[in-house]
């Protein structure tokens, strides 16, 4: 019962963070700032939702359920490692492409000689 409550809370917080990420992706002014919203909102909300689902899986503590929990945690670690990497690779690609950067004092060129 306690586990259920904890997992409901985790999933709800995860969805709230996902709302933040989605709104950020829509609202932020340029590619780089959208990347912040996408990369971070994505990772954290995914982590919390998967943790909640994994804990919910444990409400019957059998060996098979523990293994499923382990697999879900494995996916979590997998995405936690890969997500910053793909964020980095994409933002670097964008930077070298020369996408303009939005700043307070008007636009600044990203990477154009």
């Amino acid at each position: 019962m306690i586990i259920d409550t904890i997992s409901i809370c985790l999933i709800c917080i995860g969805i709230v963070f996902f709302i933040g990420g989605a709104v950020g992706i829509l609202r932020f002014p340029d590619f780089y700032t959208r990347m912040h919203a996408a990369g971070k909102g994505d990772t954290c909300s995914m982590f919390l939702i998967l943790l909640g689902l994994g804990l919910y899986q444990l409400h019957e503590p059998t060996l098979a359920n523990f293994l499923v929990f382990g697999k879900i945690m494995f996916i979590t670690i997998f995405i936690m490692v890969t997500s910053p990497t793909s964020t980095h690779a994409l933002i670097k690609a964008g930077f070298e492409e020369g996408i303009k950067m939005w700043t307070r004092n008007g636009e600044k060129k990203g990477n154009v000689k």
Partner: peptide, 30 residues
């Protein structure tokens, strides 16, 4: 919540914007 991100895929000014949006949707699909 994936639907607003779809907007970025359709309208995103640069190609990388679209890729980022697809990437976010992909993680959520998992």
């Amino acid at each position: 919540l994936m639907l607003p991100i779809m907007y970025r895929i359709i309208a995103g000014p640069t190609a990388i914007d679209r890729i980022v949006a697809v990437n976010v949707i992909g993680t959520k699909t998992a």
